[in-house]
Simulated assay, not measured.
Amino acid sequence: MLLTIGELSHRAGLSPATLRYYEEIALISSTRSAGRHRRYPRWTLRRLAVVAAGQRIGLSLAQIRQSLADLPTDRAPTRAEWSVLSASWRSHVNARIAELTTLRDELDGCVGCGCLSLDRCPLYNPGDEAATEGPGARLIRRAQMDPSS
């Protein structure tokens, strides 16, 4: 059974514009009716659920598309295929957990206290020395990349 874009939109909880965009960037695909209207196989709902799961863990649409490239394009993924895909996403989730834990711990010792201790604060930047490194919070990013600082 094929779904119209309106039916798929309603079932997936996504706007038709989002579905058209997902099709444009090859996350999903459709066939066309004689009147050139989009028609989606029912298993597209499962594929959209995989996209939503990837977004929920913080993957970009490009990363999700790359992951979906390993799945069949003519049916819903099997339990085994989903297991392989989700295992590959596990390292991303673990890295995000570690990053957020570090962020939480640094907030208490830095901005959270309000003192901005000059001898240990990663935000301290006398004379705007970090300006030569480019825009943004360079000292914070440097501290993230070098845990010994």
Rank of each mutant, 00 (worst) to 15 (best):
E7Y: 05
L8I: 13
S9R: 08
S9L: 12
S9E: 09
H10R: 15
T18Y: 06
L19H: 10
Y22Q: 09
Y22R: 07
Y22H: 13
E24N: 11
E24P: 07
I28H: 00
R32P: 06
R32Q: 09
S33F: 07
S33A: 14
G35F: 06
R46Y: 05
R47C: 03
L48Y: 02
A49R: 00
V50K: 01
V51A: 09
A52F: 08
A52K: 15
R56Y: 04
I57V: 15
G58R: 06
G58A: 09
G58K: 11
S60R: 07
L61D: 05
Q66W: 08
S67V: 06
D70M: 09
L71I: 02
L71Q: 00
P72F: 05
T78W: 08
R79H: 10
E81Y: 03
W82V: 10
W82N: 09
W89D: 07
W89I: 06
H92P: 00
V93G: 05
A95W: 07
R96C: 00
A98R: 00
L100T: 03
T101A: 04
L103F: 11
R104L: 12
G109T: 15
G109Q: 15
C110G: 15
C113E: 05
L116W: 08
L116S: 14
L118G: 01
R120H: 15
R120N: 11
P122Q: 05
L123D: 08
N125G: 04
G127A: 03
D128P: 08
G136N: 13
L139N: 08
L139A: 12
I140H: 07
M145A: 14
M145S: 09
